[in-house]
Amino acid sequence: MTVRRSRVGARQDGLKRSATVGPVTRRRATGAVRQHGVTEVPHTELTRYARCSSSYGGYGAVVDSLVVITDVTKRYAADGRPALDGVSLGVAAGEAVAVMGPSGSGKSTLLNLIAGLDRPTSGTITVGGERIDSLSETGVARFRRRQVGMIFQFFNLLDDLTVADNVLLPAQLAGVPRGKARDAAGELLARLGIERYRNSYPGRLSGGERQRVAIARALVNSPAVLLADEPTGAVDTATGEEIGELLLDLNRSGQTLVLVTHSPDLAARYARRVIRLVDGRVAADTATDTAAMARP
């Protein structure tokens, strides 16, 4: 299955390849330890990895990444523990990043901040060159239409609308001409194998089918980054693997993916980089064996 590449991935294809080559070579040179299917780089190497995670080196990598998070803190209560505490990281175009951590570690908060669903208490967030932490509500809604596709654990489809209408909705909100929107939706439904359900209602679909609909909806506006919050959390194992493969295929086609998951297996199989959060801080930021194996 081929999926239309993200715009950023398509433009930066050459750069992306060179960015994936460097870390593999350097990681092996430092004798990294393999643990739980994830090759972990000692923390002292983490900063160098982050700086050298692309051919640019240093903070140049952060600046040129698709998603740039700089010293972001998020507190929900003024005197409470921060959900995120001084997090800085970047996601390069075309990367598949898994964010893991125990409950309350800030995974979903991080995802929400990248999607513009929430605002950081301090720090900056840039996606696709656009700084989103200072946008108005209207601005951030427009940003989400253009740059972000969201996939939720419990699908979050609208039960009153058909599958086709659910998929079309982001395009209609963005003012895409009707015909063009219908074509894009139809293509996505076909490619995700759910075209026969186009006139059905979400309530009659299985979990896996609903998640495919959600993925189609997330992709209809060709977003720069796809954000998935526990995309397999509400489906059985087999369906979860299907969904995972789907996401992997999307990423192979150039779609930037940030994925929140509890499952190390999922992270290992479908992401090339794992960011581990503990108590709102980045505890680890490593490439996975999958990345090591998948990269040329």
């Binding site: 989400r144 979050n156 609208l158």
Partner: peptide
Amino acid sequence: VHDLGVFKAIGMTPRQ
């Protein structure tokens, strides 16, 4: 309210 959240998550502006 949940549906409203979904609308907003997929890009519905406050005016919409």
